[in-house]
Simulated scan of single mutants.
Amino acid sequence: MNIIIADDHPLFRSGVRNLLRTTEDLVVAGEASTGDEALELTAKLDPDLILMDIRMPGINGIEATRLIKEKHPRTEVLILTMFRDDQSVFTAMRAGAKGYVLKDADEIELLQSIRIVGSGGAVFGSDIAGRMIHYFSASQSKEPSVHPALSELTRREMDILEHIAEGYTNAQISGKLAISAKTVANNVSTLLNKLQVMDRHEARRLLLQVREGAELPDM
């Protein structure tokens, strides 16, 4: 299995590289220190799997994952990070990652995760799996109704709209979703057009009305 290690910390990459060298089936095909380098190496090497950090210079790991899955769907991505918050986990999943493991996982767990994701499966660290179960169990009883005005939004646009409804600025949304400020601004413009509203305040009002079950005018 050919693997690219994408992480901006040379010492961490060295540790993972040395671990993979102890195996007979896992080969380090290349290393990247930024999201942009991960994209370039993927196009050049066509790896089976990328071990992807989230926070890196330039394009972050989640945005790099989304772009890689769009252009190279055969390549699987396993997120390997220190971020354990729900937003990072679910944003990575939406981007196309098949696994999410914390950097403090032991060597056996990491190797097992690499092999599972590389063979087309999905895997999440024990701590992350527990958080996912709790999240979905809690959300089942409060699933919002879907209004035609919202049904055309992409997952990312819906994520951004929900953050707008909570009062976050574009800069704050950029940090929380680990995407560029330009990407946030572009998606805000698109979702406003799809919802046929004038500004983010009207978009927020529309979403809150849907959550409260209020009647909305035809759009």
Rank of each mutant, 00 (worst) to 15 (best):
N2I: 07
N2W: 01
L11V: 10
R13Y: 00
G15F: 03
G15P: 06
L19H: 10
T23P: 13
E24K: 15
V28L: 10
A29N: 14
G30M: 06
A32F: 07
E37K: 08
L39S: 01
T42F: 09
A43C: 07
A43Q: 10
L49Y: 02
L51F: 04
D53W: 00
H72Q: 09
P73H: 09
R74N: 13
R74Y: 10
E76H: 14
L78N: 06
L80I: 14
S88D: 05
F90M: 11
V101Y: 06
E107S: 13
I114A: 02
I114Y: 01
I116W: 10
A122F: 07
A122L: 04
D127L: 12
I133F: 06
Q140A: 13
K142M: 09
E143D: 05
S145N: 03
P148F: 11
A149Y: 06
E157Y: 05
M158W: 04
I160D: 13
L161H: 05
A165R: 01
G167W: 10
G167C: 02
G167H: 05
T169R: 04
Q172Y: 02
G175Q: 13
G175I: 02
A181I: 08
K182Y: 07
T183Y: 02
V184I: 07
V184E: 10
V188A: 12
L191F: 15
L192V: 09
N193H: 13
K194F: 14
K194D: 12
V197G: 04
M198T: 13
M198H: 11
M198K: 14
H201D: 15
H201I: 14
R204V: 02
R205F: 14
L206G: 00
L206E: 03
Q209L: 05
Q209E: 13
E212H: 05
G213N: 10
